[in-house]
Structures are given as structure tokens and as C-alpha cells.
Design a protein around this nucleic acid. Structure first.
Lengths: 189, 189
DNA sequence: GAAAAGCATTGCCCTAGGTCAACGTTTTCA
DNA sequence: TGAAAACGTTGACCTAGGGCAATGCTTTTC
């Protein structure tokens, strides 16, 4: 259950086994079902999640009722509603597992405790933030000015299995396209 | 010259004067002119910048020759080409001061040295990253599905002086609109 | 295992916004 | 300070992509 998390940590920093076990002991396994909601619109997020199996999706619904997907975390990735977790404010977004999943979750309190007391963990968190920031930036300037077909080619290049893992509808809401337009773009590949 | 930087740090963490002075001593003042290029497309970024006066802009130019603005840093903000600085790869983007500016810059080496040795500085960097990540995310899901008018209202709400500080052309390239469309949207406010 | 609900795909129509060009104003710099 | 370059605004035109609906396929549910 903890193999993937241990591998994740070991691949990013050198760490002794005792510290590694200590870190992992703060993570609690959670099994979820397809479309299970981990966080509701007005909830305040209290956990950081590591995806051992399955997939977490973060999304919002606007006044007109249409969904926008902000982020996917697949196996071996971390995911949470960061603004809410950090500022302890209502999330104004939803977090769900889109398929039957096995997650490891750590409370906000324990997470920041580890960040403050375990240098290796602070280092890994810094890496997660830096990478997350870079990815978000790339998505912004990557998509700006792209037409539908270019967006599709972009995801295929940067996340090859993305279109195979998530539904057409969810992929469309991530790419900022309507399902019909995404469908047509894929047909033109 | 260092007042704004000191205020920035003091407002975010409690710190003794000696440490504060020590941190500031690693920052070197740089004066720049309007449209001065701080970083070229194939450069590898070596500095983190703090804006004491003026404004830094980060942007790219695509094959067709049109600009996309990724980020602005105004007085009291930090800015750099983060992916390049972190990964030490060619930036594939440009960094410039859009007006006569006074910057404080710190080398990558000294920056990470401070992060690794001064806990208060590590904490501030973590805050910068968290905030940057949140801002980037908000921009993504804030803009997705917005029409031109909504985007303009969004910046006015979130960065009230933005449209006053930067040219119509640059604002348009930040919002993902053509200059004409931005012009028309402002006329409809 | 049958009924129902949800999804992907595709055709038709329409609108938001991009391109291009013209014009007046502001900025630049020699 | 004056010529030239750059910019903002606006009009005319055109196209990419959204909305809606029909059809067939897949998945869920009881």
C-alpha cells in the first residue's frame, strides 16, 4: 500500500528508512468509489492526498451549470484543493475520484508538521509546489492562442495517456472546449 | 532602496534585524530602462528579481510572431523565469522591464543558499510558491469559459490598477484577447 | 437481463471574437 | 522640436467553435 509513496519520496531525496517509515505513518489509507466526492463546494479542505491507484479530479461548476476541470492527479501524484487547504477558506470547487481509487491522505496539521520538522519533506513539498507552478504556467501560455486541434496535440504530447484515461466530456472541460468540438478535433488527428 | 524588501519580509515572518540585513545583503540593486531585456529566449535564467519600482513582464512569442504575456510583477513583488531558473534550461521566454525600473536581484546560488540555511527565508519562498500556484490556478479556471467582457471585469476586480499600468496591447496579450477586442470590451463597460 | 440513463459523435445554425485596414493621437529619439 | 514610429479605437468582414438536437452505443441499475 505504501510502496508507491515510498518510491516517490526516495526518488526525490536521500532518506533513511526510519524517517521514511515515520513519514508514511502519518498517511492514512482511504478507498473510494467511482464519482465519490472528497470535497464539497463549501467545505474547507483538511487533507492532502496521494494517489496510489485511480484518479482524483478537481473541478468547479459555474452559474450556468457547466463544469470546468482544473486538475487531474493520477497514480503516483499528489492532489488537493490547495487554495482552500492553505487559506482554510471554503473551497468553491469540488474534488472527486473519477474511478474506484486507493488514496493515502494526510491531515493538514500533520502535513505542515512534517514540512516544519523534516527537512527532506520540506524539500519534497518545495518540489511539488515548484512543479505545480511550472505546470500551471505551461498550461496557461500553452493553451492561450491555441485552437482546438493544437490543444489536443498538446495534451497528447505532454500527457500521452490522458485522453485514454478520462472521458471525452471531462477532457473537454479540462481543455476549455465543448465535448462536440473535442470530438471533432480528435476526428481530424 | 531596501525598505520595500525589508517590509515585504517583515510582514510575512518574524525576524531579527541581523538576519534581515544579512538576507538583504545578498540582493544587488539594478536599474533598468524602459523595454530593457533581462532575459533572452535562449538564455538560462540566473537571478530572482524583487521589484522595488517599475514593472517586470514575462512573455513569449510564438511562430506567427504574436506575443503572449504570462506574468507581471509590480512594486513589492517577486518575479523570474521560474522553469528556467529551477531546471537551468533555456528559458524559451523573455523577461523585460516595461518601464524604467529599480530592481533587487539575487543569484540562483545565493537564493537557494538562503532557502537552505535561513528557515524564515524558506518559509517566505514557500509562501511565494503557494501564492503563485494559487494565482495561476485562479487565472486558469477564472478565464476558462469567460467572454471578453467577463475577463476585463475579472482583472478590474482582482488587480484594480492593472489596466492603468500596462498598455492596451500588453493587457490584451495577458488576457488572451486581441487588442481590438479588448478595446471594444472596455468601451462596453 | 431488460429498461433507463448517460455518453460520443455528427449535422445545422449562429455568434463572439479574430484579421485587416483606416484614422487620429501619443510617444520616441535624433 | 519635428519626423517617424507605435499605439488605441473603430468599422467591415469572416471563421472557429458553441448550442442544440438526433442517433446510436455503452454503462448502470435493480
Amino acid at each position: 500500500m505504501y510502496n508507491l509513496l515510498e518510491a516517490f519520496i526516495k526518488s526525490r531525496t536521500s532518506i533513511d528508512d526510519a524517517t521514511l517509515k515515520m513519514i508514511c505513518s502519518h498517511f492514512e489509507p482511504v478507498k473510494t468509489r467511482r464519482n465519490e466526492l472528497l470535497l464539497n463546494y463549501s467545505d474547507v479542505c483538511q487533507h492532502y492526498y496521494f494517489v496510489n491507484k485511480g484518479c482524483i479530479r478537481l473541478y468547479t461548476i459555474n452559474k450556468e451549470g457547466s463544469e470546468t476541470t482544473r486538475f487531474f492527479a493520477f497514480e503516483g501524484g499528489f492532489g488537493t484543493a490547495l487554495p482552500s487547504l492553505i487559506e482554510q477558506t471554503p473551497a468553491h470547487e469540488y474534488m472527486q475520484t473519477i474511478e474506484r481509487s486507493e488514496l493515502l491522505r494526510i491531515s493538514r496539521h500533520n502535513f505542515y508538521h512534517l514540512v516544519d520538522t523534516v527537512p527532506q519533506f520540506a524539500f519534497i513539498y518545495r518540489q511539488i509546489l515548484e512543479l505545480g507552478f511550472i505546470t500551471a504556467q505551461k498550461r496557461i501560455y500553452g493553451f492561450q492562442g491555441f485552437d482546438a486541434l493544437e490543444k489536443v496535440k498538446w495534451v497528447i504530447r505532454h500527457q500521452p495517456d490522458f485522453l485514454l484515461r478520462v472521458s471525452n466530456k471531462m477532457a473537454a472541460s479540462y481543455l476549455g472546449l465543448s465535448p462536440s468540438t473535442l470530438s471533432r478535433a480528435k476526428a481530424r488527428l
